[in-house]
Design a protein around this nucleic acid. Sequence first.
DNA 1: GCCAACGTTGGC
DNA 2: GCCAACGTTGGC
Length: 154
Amino acid sequence: MAYWLMKSEPDEFSIDDLQQCENQTEPWEGIRNYQARNFLRDAVKVGDTVLFYHSSCKVPGIVGLATVSSEPYPDQSAFDNESSYYDPKSDIENPRWVAVDLTYRQTFKQIITLKTLKADPHLADMVLVSKGTRLSVQPVTEAEFQYIVSVLAS
DNA sequence: GCCAACGTTGGC
DNA sequence: GCCAACGTTGGC
């Protein structure tokens, strides 16, 4: 089983929103970056664990956990010209973007802030804190995951 | 809202 | 296939 960090803007879709979805499950749509898409398409597996990260907000950081609950499938929002994620270059015959379903697992008692993550020498090699990375889907090592959950989130 | 750091587009 | 111009991300 692998570990991932996925970013969402809480104004758009927060971990509370995920918790309140039917079956606490919702399509993770709107990824429009090829590197992130390739992770979703080629590497993310059902049952993988996701660190849910809130970005572009007052206090960015990891807010909880989710589980990947589907295989990748074509991102339907790319076909919807009413959607802000609409991409006319993606068509149903040849979809350009993929989504997976995420299922809510847990909200941490308190947010693990980006500030905390950046300051922690155990996490110096995290993709999240390395310079110039803005990937919205990124791998997390088992050591990083265990440290975050067992030390920072407890 | 600013802007640095990336990513994408498209003319050539 | 280069690369300038433009668009986006996301912390601050």
